[in-house]
Amino acid sequence: MNSKTTYSEQELVNLLQQRSEQAFGYLYDNYSGSLYGVVTSIITDKETANDVLQNVFVNIWRKIESYDPSKGRLFTWMLNIARNAAIDEIRSKGYRDSQKNQPLTENVDTMAEKSASVPMYNDVGLKKVLSRLKGELRVLIDLSYFQGFTHEEISKALNIPLGTVKTRIRTALIQLRTMID
């Protein structure tokens, strides 16, 4: 395992685009942990999270041709694939059905209540950072980033004007950034 060389991002992308399975194994070994961290911050069920992680890497393998380095780093691209896959999963009917304690009618309102009331002591990564945001900003980031609600949906559900939702999410993001740096 240690015999493998390290690749630069550019080399890695080139090799993946040439369908190198070895490069894919390297990619997995290097990034599965951080992407799994993102997936599990959105999906608590372990089995489902495993399936989603698998889909994430299958998608990376299949879509590597469409990765455009001018729009962002490889990790950013993969991070967004992971987040989108996890959100698609929690918003799918199958997933909601499997969450027996959550009624199907659950919507952004009840989500908001939960986000506001449930402390996030056990969270890792971005979610841990998120728990340091103050109440309302935390709810907004949780709803938009971790639950994938659009600004419009949030505006309606919380009865806050759309413009205000946008500026507050921006404010929250700026604060998040200073916490990460």
Partner: peptide, 8 residues
């Protein structure tokens, strides 16, 4: 993210 990995 690299500092907060969860091993699958």
């Amino acid at each position: 993210a690299m500092e907060n990995t969860v091993v699958p």
